[in-house]
Design a protein around this nucleic acid. Structure first.
Lengths: 119, 119
DNA sequence: TCTGTATATGCCTTGACAGGAATATGCGGA
DNA sequence: TCCGCATATTCCTGTCAAGGCATATACAGA
């Protein structure tokens, strides 16, 4: 059995590769056949196919056969997963912002205080 | 000069490694010294140090010296970047949802229509 | 059925990276 | 100053993934 996060690792790995990231960004504008992608991003056709395979395996992309070509379209589902995962972290940067705010206020009031204990 | 996305690739690469991902998840609850992390996640100390180095390089973590130990804390800034990047994609899953909705409605009304052209 | 176009797959080489084990470094206390 | 604890670094090895190139597959049209 697999780790519950394994899907996320795979998604991260897929997006960590610059050319795949570019493909994802490109497909955001709409579906494209393989050759188109290669031309647009200046990649050899076999490499495009291979990258698309990886993207398909993690569910970031889906194919539709259109005569002899394949139309690849972005499937945002894994990105939505990522978004849900980030949810847990949003509180952190809000908190950070408040801390920063506090520091600024402290500076403004020129108030000197001893280092507070961490919670 | 670097690609504007290079920071994102690095963040993705950092999070694609299961043990680093676990470290990030662990640090969400608060800062920890190196040894603590190793014990908690059952990792050898050198590996923890190495993973922390990578996390620090991408800015996901920051260190505070505390006597002879180092307290590692999560820095959510890169995650916030990620969040901002995802912003552009949120519209996609909303759109998907609406398409799905449409399909459901169509099924409910038993309406038969010819395949519409893509926009 | 033969051909050409679009795409997928296989093989090879190379580079990056993770874990393991040994060792170096930094710092506080006696 | 010497020792010990906490952490960082180094070296080694194995694995895996990406690019380049050649080739296989699939399908439409003549």
């Amino acid at each position: 059995m697999e780790n519950i996060w394994s899907v996320m690792y795979a998604t991260f790995a897929a997006l960590a590769e610059p050319n795949r990231f570019r493909i994802v960004e490109l497909l955001r504008a709409g579906a494209r056949p393989v050759n188109d992608i290669g031309v647009e991003l200046d990649l050899a056709q076999p490499q495009v196919s291979k990258h698309l395979r990886v993207l398909k395996e993690v569910g970031l992309v889906e194919v539709e056969a259109r005569a002899q070509q394949r139309l690849y379209a972005l499937d945002p589902a894994p990105l939505q997963e990522l978004d849900r995962w980030l949810e847990k972290y949003r509180a952190l940067w809000v908190e950070r912002f408040e801390q920063l705010d506090e520091v600024i206020n402290a500076a403004h009031t020129q108030e000197k205080r001893r280092g507070r204990k961490k919670r």
